[in-house]
């Protein structure tokens, strides 16, 4: 464990807490893409299958349970909670995310470390996480103005993988047999997808203005 990875995990946790806060405090999920939340639930379920087979550390296991439980709770809330689900932007959240799932599954079958069930699913979860934010970014552009909590949620979500890139660089230089190009390439793609969001987020922060994404 190194500081970059720890900061990355904490940033990821903060993004989830902000989203839970937004939904709980405002009893609304307007501006949040249910499809992105469903993709994240799938990412965690596919990646953390080793939760019961490989024990790495208490921290690792606890965080896996937290990520799986929170992502499922958010999906449940947006689908079933009688108050929250009314504020879901169903007509704006129209990204065909099933194509993302199919494409990532196909890629994982072609490119993975070892052609085993767990490795294919792990690669699938890495590829899917890289593109899971797309429905959310599309929804933000369509819904025009972005409320503060939603903007902060997306910002922290983007920042977490950027910390992981620093972690991979650090591990590359400090550990001998460290080769994890699948995560690195996907992580770079994932962070790059946030580039324009980060730019507009920075502009709105500098001008102290409302975050506006160009349509």
């Amino acid at each position: 464990m190194n500081i970059f990875r720890f900061l990355g995990d904490m940033t990821h946790l903060i993004s989830i807490l902000i989203l839970l806060l937004k939904i709980y405090a405002t009893k609304s999920c307007s501006g949040i893409s249910l499809k992105t939340q469903e993709l994240y639930a799938l990412v965690f379920l596919a990646r953390y299958l080793d939760l019961f087979t490989d024990f790495i550390s208490v921290y690792n296991s606890v965080m896996k349970v937290v990520f799986i439980a929170s992502s499922l709770a958010i999906v449940w809330c947006m689908r079933r909670h009688r108050v929250v689900r009314r504020s879901y932007d169903k007509e704006l959240d129209t990204f065909r995310h099933y194509f993302l799932v199919a494409a990532c599954l196909a890629l994982a079958l072609l490119v993975q470390e070892k052609f085993t069930f767990l490795e294919v699913l792990w690669a699938f979860s890495i590829y899917l996480e890289a593109v899971a934010i797309l429905p959310q970014l599309v929804l933000l552009q369509r819904s025009g103005n972005v409320d503060n909590l939603t903007g902060q949620y997306v910002f922290f979500l983007g920042a977490y993988r950027a910390f992981y890139i620093l972690n991979w660089i650090y591990r590359y230089f400090t550990e001998t047999h460290f080769s994890r190009w699948i995560s690195c390439v996907s992580g770079l793609v994932q962070t790059a997808l946030y580039a324009d969001f980060f730019y507009y987020y920075f502009i709105s922060w500098k001008n102290n203005s409302k975050l506006q994404l160009p349509a």
């Binding site: 990821h12 080793d50 490989d54 790495i56 990520f67 470390e113 995560s183």
Partner: peptide, 10 residues
């Protein structure tokens, strides 16, 4: 160990 380095990350 069975888990390669890459799987010790979240």
């Amino acid at each position: 160990t069975g888990t390669s380095a890459v799987k010790d990350e979240l």
